[in-house]
Design a protein around this nucleic acid. Structure first.
Lengths: 336, 336
DNA sequence: TTGTAAGCGTTATCAG
DNA sequence: CTGATAACGCTTACAA
């Protein structure tokens, strides 16, 4: 591989000069600059990233640590982050901490010296250990994580408020027995959405029966299974709030297979408003989450941290969610 | 930030010993190893990636260059690549070469010294320039690119065969005026799919009218627009083959808004079989593309190249596509 | 305006 | 089994 030395030798200048050309240092005679550039092009030279980072201690790369890469949610986050990063000329080192792969801790460790900052999404409530493994004084933004005691910037979405809005909406349509299909155990978002549901059930005096809280894990399959259990309840709930759209999709097919018609026989609402939601039949009422924006804001927040000369107060930003009413809840096109 | 020197000093050993511990060199006394590890943990040390890469000239990172990050297709590719990369302990440096961002050439250049190999997806037919900018003798796998004269490994999908299967299927249902909504101009996949369509039109003596070939660019909006133009044709085609599912989605809503019922009034087929396809109403007949597998195979191919000690013959792998018949084409549930 | 040379944090080659 | 020390490719004072 061809290095700065080769270019320097061939162009008849010192390595310092070649370096200056590549860092647009003003102090280079136009003629010299041209010769260097010509030679570099001819030789097909490009600077060695690692060597550069080593001396400048800046990588122009930003690490993105996700719990998984499956589904539209993560894909949208990546897109948002990439977009914002690219505007600043930054690269993206993506890593997923799926079960079976390296632990969050390992992933963090192996990113040392390869990234200038980190966006970490780790919605598990017991992520204290991983937090401790974050290098101290290193720019980090937590995404959709429990509000942490540690001093990291964090950004999340209005889970509680979204769940409240959805549950209230269903109640407003006349439903009093509203079931919820819960998200993954130990997941912060899931816990918040459940909290919102319960608050409304309590405040509005709806049926508080524990049987109406079905467990799920955010997967389509778990939504399907929960809907089956729900269908067997006596009396059957007249509305279901799935804690994410993936489970709503599973529930939708299960309910239909069970012979129920939506929204006539039962109303359904989801959470996230993934692109798929509006294409379902009936189109899915959901709580819209600006996923791409979440990624963009996280990135902006990270850059702010990168530019800060001295440690600042840690901030927490919460993105608003909005209820999107479609046909699956029966507010339009049929009685609930 | 804390370096290997700090650990060495505090542990009372040389940096060489610390390094040996981290590279599990066998030649370290268990007691020494333990002391080093303890000190490293206490200090929160982790090796500096860039420094490591500089001397070993291996980054344990793999570059993935995509034309865009929008949509389920790319998301699935990323997932497939990540999965295969993670199995080998590799990281993923993702970059999109969208318009407005850096050019493919720039992106490639800036990856020098940061990755051990590259997976490049650049379906534009005129990507000759970018190909020349690839460092020579560097492991590269081309994804969904035109079969290149250059000596790179490449992997793609059976576009032509898939389009043939879809068009034949529609013809087999009795359609003779089959329209196509074409993919982006200058795109290799689009060209191949069109070629497959035309071959069947010719071979089966279907209506070859050029008016039946509507332009599109793979976007949902372009599918919508094309369907509107198509709807105005006299006589109206009885079947439409959209060159990807995104356009099929757009076409579906346009046709429905125009008052047509699918598949009764017009049959529709897509390409890619994105997850969304089976949730549409009616469910979309499509050509299934194993997108995740595409990413995995590309990665496997890259690793093979990485391990090769001497340059090997460049290989081309083509993944089979399969027709997935659902209700939108009328083969099931209604006359075409 | 240009060149010389000292690192950046590792690993690898030698000695011991 | 362990310790010096020379790279790796680059940037950046400091000199010239």
């Amino acid at each position: 591989m061809i290095t700065i030395k080769d270019v320097a030798r061939q162009a008849g200048v010192s390595v310092a000069t070649v370096s200056r050309v590549y860092n647009d240092s003003a102090n280079v005679r136009p003629h010299t600059r041209a010769r260097v550039q010509a030679m570099a092009r001819e030789l097909g030279y490009s600077p060695h990233g690692a060597a550069r980072s080593l001396i400048t201690s800046r990588t122009h790369t930003l690490g993105l640590l996700l719990p998984d890469l499956y589904g539209e949610f993560f894909s949208e986050v990546i897109r948002g982050v990439d977009q914002a990063a690219q505007r600043e000329g930054f690269h993206l080192l993506v890593s997923s901490a799926r079960a079976g792969g390296p632990s969050l801790e390992d992933a963090l460790r192996s990113m040392r010296g390869r990234v200038d900052g980190l966006i970490v999404m780790s919605p598990d409530l017991d992520a204290g250990a991983s937090r401790r493994s974050l290098p101290h004084g290193f720019p980090v933004v937590m995404l959709n994580c429990p509000p942490s005691d540690a001093g990291y910037d964090s950004i999340g979405i209005a889970n509680y408020e979204g769940a409240v809005a959805m549950t209230r909406h269903l109640a407003g349509l006349g439903h009093t027995r509203i079931a919820i299909i819960k998200g993954a155990e130990g997941n912060f978002d899931a816990a918040e959405r459940l909290r919102g549901y319960r608050a409304v059930v309590r405040d509005l005096g709806l049926d508080p029966s524990p049987a109406l809280e079905l467990s799920g894990d955010f997967s389509e399959a778990s939504g399907h299974a929960a809907a089956l259990r729900l269908h067997a309840l006596v009396p059957r709930p007249t509305a279901v709030f799935a804690a994410n759209d993936g489970m709503a999709v599973g529930a939708l097919s299960a309910l239909r297979e069970a012979g129920l018609r939506l929204p006539h026989d039962i109303a359904l609402g989801g959470f996230d408003d993934i692109p798929l939601a509006r294409y379902l039949e009936p189109a899915l009422t959901s709580v819209h989450v600006p996923i791409g924006v979440l990624g963009e804001h996280a990135t902006a927040c990270l850059f702010a941290g990168l530019r800060a000369t001295e440690p600042t107060e840690s901030r927490r930003e919460v993105l608003a969610t909005t209820l999107v009413v479609r046909r699956s809840c029966g507010a339009q096109g049929g009685p609930g």
